[in-house]
């Protein structure tokens, strides 16, 4: 990551992404206020109920949001490196696919897809090779951890061939 925060002399324009972060923080605070307002008032000898601490935290978030706006306007946020979108999409897609496939297709197939997608995110896009390789690797891991070490990993059609 860049070493940021060196006071810059030239005035940059307001940092939009940083402003978005401020909005996010304020939104989080609003969410806490809303949620804790619905909690039952429970008599407690401590004088601190279930909503007191969330209230304090939400106030803190609001202050931090204001501070973030201030720094964003001054352009105090560090430079950011250019981010490539495609690899990120590959990896997130792989994780999402694993999540959705896990219950019905079992550990090996779901995790094999994740493996191939992650490799694709890092530039190896030969899916005809990486998917089977990933599934084989996952199956080996499944046999080791679920079969031998008794971890409970979801089984699917592939795993049933072995058990």
């Amino acid at each position: 990551m860049t070493k940021g925060n060196t006071p810059s002399n030239e005035r940059r324009r307001p940092d939009r992404a940083a402003l978005a972060i401020a909005v996010f923080l304020a939104g989080l605070a609003g969410l806490i206020f809303w949620d804790s307002s619905r909690l039952a008032r429970i008599n407690s000898y401590s004088g601190i109920g279930p909503s007191t601490i969330p209230f304090v935290i939400a106030c803190g978030l609001l202050l931090l949001a204001a501070w973030t706006v201030f720094e964003a306007l001054r352009g105090d946020f560090p430079e950011r490196e250019r981010q490539e979108i495609a690899p990120v999409v590959w990896i997130i897609g792989g994780l999402a696919a694993q999540m959705l496939l896990l219950k019905s297709f079992g550990f090996s197939i779901a995790t094999g897809v994740l493996f191939a997608a992650a490799a694709a995110g890092f530039g190896r896009r030969k899916l005809w090779f990486t998917i089977p390789a990933g599934i084989l690797l996952s199956l080996g891991i499944w046999l080791l951890f679920a079969g031998l070490l008794q971890l409970s990993l979801p089984a699917g059609p592939l795993e049933h061939l072995f058990w």
Partner: peptide
């Protein structure tokens, strides 16, 4: 003790 939930349901 093989913990195969789905397996045992299917079986």
């Amino acid at each position: 003790m093989k913990q195969f939930f789905l397996a045992s349901i299917l079986a």
